[in-house]
């Protein structure tokens, strides 16, 4: 069989990223765009090296808020969804409240949270938590309900107890959906923490962004934005890795494997 040389699938994303960076750099230089409007990637890289100390300091602060809020959301949402899935009436009563609460923009309540919980870690963690909470609950709930009728019939014909049913059928069937929700949440967690820092903070990438904007230091603003998106990508990749490890049987990976042949 003839084999054509192909770019390994895992490098596709990196390749596109590299192309964007090159186009950006060339565009800025050829078009003579001034640094205070759009700095080229080289200037951003330079700035990153130069200010590495303060950037790492603020990155650490934001990462801490993100991780706590994100972890809290996972710890609370999944068991809540699992419980709701067992009790249809409770779900019917609580679900509209959940949806209604979700229509309130987190940005709008951020100042309130600062009033309630002060300027420290708590309000940022809380906003990150609130913003992550909903997608995980919704997807997990779908997951815990995803077993088709025949699966519950099979379970009943074996005489499963409710607990056996939950452990052996509901949880494994729910996991792909749970991971989908957690992935969405992983990107939102950072948004939440930054919103909190915008309102009131003395550290964190959101704080650094506000400072840079105030000083019209566009290069620093872009540097922070780049760090933020890297942080987001890393967190997403972490969840993806855990998923691959935990669900080797899962459909979405099946599709990717099939694509590679």
């Amino acid at each position: 069989m003839k084999t054509r040389w192909r770019i390994p699938g895992s490098l596709d994303g990196l390749l596109v990223g590299a192309i964007i960076v090159v186009l950006w750099e060339v565009g800025v230089r050829v078009g003579n765009v001034p640094n205070y409007l759009l700095p080229p990637p080289s200037a951003i890289a330079q700035r990153m090296v130069q200010d590495i100390g303060s950037i790492l300091y603020h990155t650490a602060a934001t990462t801490l808020e993100v991780m706590i809020g994100f972890a809290l959301a996972i710890i609370v949402s999944i068991p809540l969804a699992a419980a709701l899935a067992q009790m249809r009436t409770v779900e019917r009563m609580l679900y509209p409240v959940l949806v209604a609460s979700q229509t309130i923009p987190k940005v709008a309540i951020a100042p309130l949270l600062v009033v309630w919980f002060g300027f420290g870690l708590a309000p940022k963690v809380l906003i990150a938590f609130l913003i992550c909470f909903f997608p995980i609950v919704v997807d997990s709930l779908i997951g815990f309900r995803s077993a088709p009728k025949e699966v519950s019939w099979l379970a009943r014909s074996m005489g499963t107890t409710r607990w056996q049913n939950f452990i052996n059928f509901q949880i494994p069937a729910a996991l792909p959906h749970i991971f989908a929700g957690v992935k969405v949440a992983s990107t939102l967690a950072i948004v939440g923490a930054i919103v909190g820092e915008f309102v009131a903070a003395d550290r964190g990438l959101g704080y650094q962004l506000i400072v840079a904007n105030g000083a019209l230091d566009v290069t620093l603003s872009f540097t922070v934005l780049v760090v933020l998106s890297l942080l987001g990508v890393l967190l997403y990749a972490l969840v993806d890795m855990v998923e691959r490890w935990a669900l080797p049987w899962h459909v979405s990976q099946r599709a990717i494997e099939g694509d590679g042949r």
């Binding site: 088709p148 025949e150 019939w153 074996m158 005489g159 069937a173 996991l175």
Partner: peptide, 29 residues
Amino acid sequence: TDIGIVFQTDVLLEWRRVLDNVMIQPQIR
């Protein structure tokens, strides 16, 4: 429960390997 059922669809558990799909019976019982 004292019964064996083959459903119209195979109802295999995607997260279990073939042997473990068969072994679910003795495990649950």
